[in-house]
Design a protein around this nucleic acid. Structure first.
Lengths: 165, 165
DNA sequence: CAAATTTAGTTGTATCATACAACCATGACT
DNA sequence: AGTCATGGTTGTATGATACAACTAAATTTG
């Protein structure tokens, strides 16, 4: 007998499975547009939008370790798209601003990304687009909140069913 | 002036950004339940459900290279959860079946995963759960179809805007 | 049917993402 | 001033994954 809960779980399982598969292309070193990886675009976009962005904010935005942030930002600086400056109130901290070239590349990458997103939008029946968009927003929020619970039963495993048998 | 299209794009961009961030925990080597990684659970689950699964089917299911499949399956065989046999009609090909222990671990991992999925479900207002589920199904399908287009403008980049100026 | 080609899977090796630890400055607290 | 905390960098280890080279078996073709 499959309960309602079972069915729901399987649905979510399959959704997450699909998403994690399809989204892989966005977390990889493949360049998406303008020679930028998806992650690099995220950084460039955040800086361009904010005007000036504290380095620390990137840790949170990307949820990665600070050393990883350093290494993700470096290529953008080397390519002359971002400039790093010392924060005025704390000489340890760094802030990032976009160079004119950075803003230009950002704009072009954005145009090109629209093609990609359009590809997704086209796959959604026109009448349902707003509904779908709204629903996904709810879902990603739920996902975000639940992500902390991702380890789920790691801890209990050692003393319980793991070693028995 | 931001057009409707712009706004839609930004929404999708942020959704994908969030998803790729939050879903990272499912593509990593962290064990989720019963000492299984998410990917390992996907494999075990597929085999348990199918009864017997051709090795080749895994390439498609996981969309990874065959060498990667080999390496993903190995730990499960070593742990005695899966058994590999030679396919009867083609002695090159392999098929996988679950051992009794594999089925047991699968069941326990599933129970435990339900906790994880419940965490997500809890974050969705009760009245909207079906709607959200349906919408995401539409979205993941669209995503799946668009994923082929993921490279978006890689090719054109070399001759066009990339090198100009 | 023998030779050439294709296919299934494994193993070697390279690359990239990422974490963690050790470290260096600087700032903050007492 | 002395201790501790914080922001960032660099070194290094691990894991995911691809690609290429290989083996063995199957399929096609002359």
């Amino acid at each position: 007998m499959t309960t309602n809960r079972d069915r729901n779980c399987r649905e979510f399982f399959e959704i997450i499975m699909t998403l994690s598969r399809e989204i892989r292309c966005c977390s990889r070193d493949d360049t998406i547009c303008q020679g930028l990886t998806f992650q690099q675009f995220i950084i460039l976009d955040a800086v361009v939008r904010e005007g000036e962005l504290a380095f620390t904010d990137l840790h949170r935005l990307l949820s990665v370790e600070k050393s990883t942030t350093t290494r993700m930002v470096n290529p953008l600086i080397r390519r002359g798209l971002l400039r790093r400056e010392t924060a005025m109130h704390d000489s340890r901290a760094a802030t990032l601003t976009a160079t004119p070239q950075g803003r230009e590349v950002h704009g072009e990458a954005w145009d090109c990304l629209e093609g990609f997103f359009d590809g997704i939008v086209q796959g959604i029946p026109p009448g349902r687009r707003n509904e779908v968009l709204a629903a996904i927003r709810v879902f990603t929020e739920a996902m975000k909140r639940a992500a902390a619970a991702c380890r789920c039963c790691d801890e209990s495993i050692k003393e319980s069913s793991w070693s028995r048998g």
